[in-house]
Design a binder for these strands. Structure first.
Lengths: 415, 415
DNA sequence: AGACTTATTTCATATCATAAACTGGATCTG
DNA sequence: CAGATCCAGTTTATGATATGAAATAAGTCT
């Protein structure tokens, strides 16, 4: 609501951003189409496009035949303008991927992590190694890397040091951005993994072209990424969307967060398996990990081999529907995208039932206005989503690169 | 994220808006202070302020002595620049109030409503009568009325017709804006009553100066108004913030919305009284209406006269805390403002307990970042909040009045 | 070949924020 | 009490910008 002051330069930047975003996200488009889509004048489109081409941001991409008239020249964002890196810092591995501007993958490095070595310094080492590896693999000029996006399984304070709070890694206030900056001059963008996955779905998956989307992620943990009016909803301190710990059964099952009755305690993988064991006279589901155990449950429920699995999963669908209804009622989105490996497993089999359960618990009107869909990109899109962060920053800035910083020695602040 | 194209005119409007909003919301201020607060240049501030004074939007308000230097001249929004009307369309009455720009009340008209006469045509009649009455009372020039804000107990589609969906009035798609426009040339702004109350608290109450606020309203109904980054969070179709029908007890009490386990069924006035009756061996709380009945319960719980009241209210505090925790986890606000008559009654007595219950169910970090406070303006601020809508529109538009429309005959669209 | 159609570019113009220079209005100092 | 000093606010010249209108480019159609 309270806008900032504007100068003619801001105007230029804003218009460049509008135009470049259209070309990048909806291209290829002709100058003529761009004037209509952006409501900029033909003169301005012409001038700005000329700038973009001059700068290498945009290139011509053939033309469209006309039926009596000058043919339109199509424009697209130049895939080779620069490269971006996406990093998925997970609980079990670090994945680093390098993309060109069209998000075509040019290199990938994977590093499994043992539980014992979650120390931030180790993690930073893995990330930097991975970056070196993908640059070497792809042979791109390190100067041409616009930035890297880091997805972490926790909350990121968007301050200068990029403090990360991630319970699952045992991190509480780790200055990850500052630590990475000490080892690399590539501009760093950071966000929560659920939010980057949501971002990937917004640009390339089930959220394309929609402005109000909540991506609901169900795996071992349960979280959500909220996009409103095309922009990520972060809240005051970037921790919005903690869907897994909303109370759905007051006084109910104990959650690993310490509270009772959290959604995660019912629809998170661990919660499902615990409930199954209880329903199955103490006998756990078979599988070497959570994912295969839940896969086995679904198969057994489907084949009728396990009544307990059938009951527990059917209850899970109910809880999940109620949880989705909470999102619908509070955020009033146009679309709910259900993802995460457990969400995909459940949704792949029972999406209509999940929709019905949500309908039961949501208000009629907002429910009628929402469509509930499955994730399209799969759980590995976290790094892809992370890599969109520097691209999003470039677009928001009208195509002007953030200046690369020289590596800054890590300074311990405070005390 | 996707900004719109900008012209020099937009820039001017935006800068006027920034400057005027500062003067209105934080004034009186000197030109010098304004340059620092808005980061506009002294030259621009000078020019724009001169325009505002010329147009009557702003006036000088004394000066501040200096210690060796030219004294600063203070500026404030001119209270007499125009007038605004706020209308609270409630389930039991229609209240119309007229204010000057400083939100000083200059006239008020109240019209009780019998349950039988909720027909939209009647309601429109009451509103128009009320407007005539407050204009006559206050003696202001009808031309000088900038606009009216209408608060309704339901969802408002922000389209041209201003369709209103209000279950409690039995309205489903009533084109209230179009109907009012047929009887008045004053520009019309509409919103949900909870949202206008939240808006009032943002400007003049417990939400002042905070950018991320959720106002939680507990009365007969239960709802919330979400403000993020200083702007109302509406969702895709303006129905965001339906907190009352989030599931807090899966499979629990039947709510009047038809679902089971809604928060409203536990902490809404009716839910509290129902639960008390059940706990009190079928004997209801005493009082001619819900408000006095709950007042009596609180008094009895306090004095130890009723163990049942004590238990039920203590449980209510728990449910309310869990509901608030859901808001904290999902929206990550800086402040929760608890209001509504029942919310104030409960909060007035048990605010520390409510905070503690919220702490139990919220994640530690977001809970530490939020302060939970009581509403400051009371439930009658709905009309005041509604009246801020035209002022907000004026500020957003840089002080340029929406042109008054000539009354447009009501056209039934469709069919 | 000439008419026509549509896309894009060029050019003159008006709007705007701003830096820098300047003026206004007060206190302080010797 | 003169003038030095300090700070608030105003004026002026400048450069950046989007745009409407006119011109041009690049085709098809007859």
């Amino acid at each position: 609501m309270v806008a900032r002051r504007a100068t003619v330069r801001d105007m230029r930047r804003s218009n460049r951003s509008v135009l470049l975003s259209k070309i990048y996200l909806d291209g290829p488009l002709s100058r003529h189409e761009l004037t209509q889509l952006t409501s900029l004048s033909p003169a301005s489109v012409s001038t700005l496009v000329a700038e973009f081409i001059e700068e290498g941001l945009v290139e011509e991409a053939g033309s469209v035949e006309s039926d009596g008239g000058r043919p339109r020249v199509l424009l697209r964002a130049a895939p080779g303008f620069g490269h971006v890196i996406g990093v998925d810092v997970g609980e079990t591995r670090v994945t680093v991927e390098l993309f060109d501007m069209s998000m075509a993958a040019l290199g990938k490095a994977d590093h499994p992590i043992e539980r014992a070595t979650l120390a931030p310094e180790m993690m930073v080492g893995h990330v930097l190694d991975g970056i070196g590896a993908v640059i070497a693999q792809s042979g791109v000029n390190a100067e041409a890397i616009l930035g890297m996006g880091i997805a972490v399984p926790g909350v990121v304070d968007q301050g200068d040091d990029g403090l990360v709070h991630a319970q699952s890694l045992g991190w509480d206030g780790v200055p990850l951005r500052a630590m990475l900056r000490a080892g690399s001059s590539i501009p760093i963008h950071m966000d929560n993994g659920a939010k980057t996955l949501g971002q990937a779905e917004m640009w390339f998956g089930a959220g394309r072209g929609v402005d109000h989307v909540v991506t609901a992620l169900v795996g071992s943990g349960v979280g959500a990424s909220v996009v409103a009016e095309g922009a990520s909803y972060r809240g005051a301190r970037s921790s919005a969307g903690e869907w897994g710990h909303t109370t759905i059964m007051y006084g109910g099952r104990l959650c690993r967060c310490g509270a009772r009755g959290c959604l995660e305690a019912y629809v998170g993988a661990e919660g499902i398996l615990d409930r199954f064991r209880e329903a199955n006279r103490g006998k756990a589901a078979e599988g070497i990990d959570e994912e295969s155990a839940i896969g086995a449950m679904i198969a057994d429920a489907d084949s009728g081999a396990s009544r307990a699995a059938e009951v527990v999963l059917s209850e899970t669908v109910g809880y999940l529907g109620a949880g989705i209804a909470t999102l619908v009622n509070l955020f009033n989105p146009e679309r709910i995208v259900l993802g995460g490996w457990a969400g995909l497993a459940l949704g792949g089999r029972w999406l209509p039932e999940i929709r019905a359960a949500a309908a039961e618990h949501a208000l009629r009107r907002p429910f009628e206005q929402v469509s509930i869909e499955l994730c399209q990109l799969g759980p590995d899109a976290v790094a892809l989503g992370a890599a969109t962060l520097p691209v999003a920053a470039l677009l928001a800035n009208g195509g002007v690169r953030a200046r690369a910083e020289s590596p800054r020695p890590l300074r311990i602040s405070g005390l």
